[in-house]
Simulated assay, not measured.
Amino acid sequence: MSTNDPKKTVEEEELIDIDSPEALEDPEDDERLQKLIAERDDLRDKFMRALADAENARKRSERDRREAEQYGGSKLARDLLPVFDNMKRAVQSISDEGREEHKAVIEGVELTMRELLNVFRKHGIEPISPQVGERFDPQQHEAMFEAPLPGTRAGEIIQVEADGFMLHDRLLRPARVGVSSMPSS
């Protein structure tokens, strides 16, 4: 029976003891052994690649899951920022005389703003609140305008229009500021 007969089982085939001196005397056996070794090496390579692909897919899905958990609500958070801004502007626009007259309403709006900030913090959103006189940081601030203001240096914040916000380690929205363009003397 030929060695290439597909009906032949492993038990029926003559096994080669590669350690014996006469094992590879037959050139056909040597060729068959080389083919088997090449096939084994090819299958081992495919197996190792499949194992690496599976591990990479597991790591990628874990990273995607973490990112979705941390940053999945960023669109909703971005949409809520103008609500916070409007509430802050409403409180800031009330005169001292109006504060006494509308004290309860102002307190309600301020409490709502604090609660909104608490919810933001609970979900990893932190405000960026620059102060007048600080240096402009392009990583966290957006310059809405530049103006020469005596008594300041170029690049100093001269007005804060809106707070910025970070979502964990990502910028959700830069703080909107005015910057001094005073030339150095």
Rank of each mutant, 00 (worst) to 15 (best):
S2M: 04
T3G: 01
V10T: 11
E14N: 11
E14Q: 12
E14K: 15
L15R: 12
L15M: 10
S20T: 12
S20A: 15
L24M: 12
P27S: 11
E28G: 13
Q34R: 14
Q34E: 07
K35E: 12
L36Q: 15
D42E: 11
D45P: 01
F47G: 03
F47W: 06
F47L: 13
A57V: 07
K59F: 07
R65K: 14
R66P: 01
E67V: 04
E67I: 06
K75D: 15
A77T: 07
L80Y: 04
P82D: 05
V83I: 15
V91T: 05
S93Q: 14
I94L: 08
E100H: 08
E100Q: 12
E100W: 08
H102C: 05
H102D: 05
I106H: 00
M113R: 01
R114F: 02
F120W: 01
R121T: 12
K122Y: 09
K122F: 05
E126G: 01
S129F: 00
P130T: 03
G133E: 04
F136R: 00
P138N: 13
H141T: 05
E142N: 04
F145V: 06
F145S: 09
G151I: 03
R153N: 13
A154S: 14
A154Y: 04
A154Q: 14
I158L: 07
G164W: 00
F165W: 09
F165E: 00
L167H: 08
R176K: 15
M182K: 11
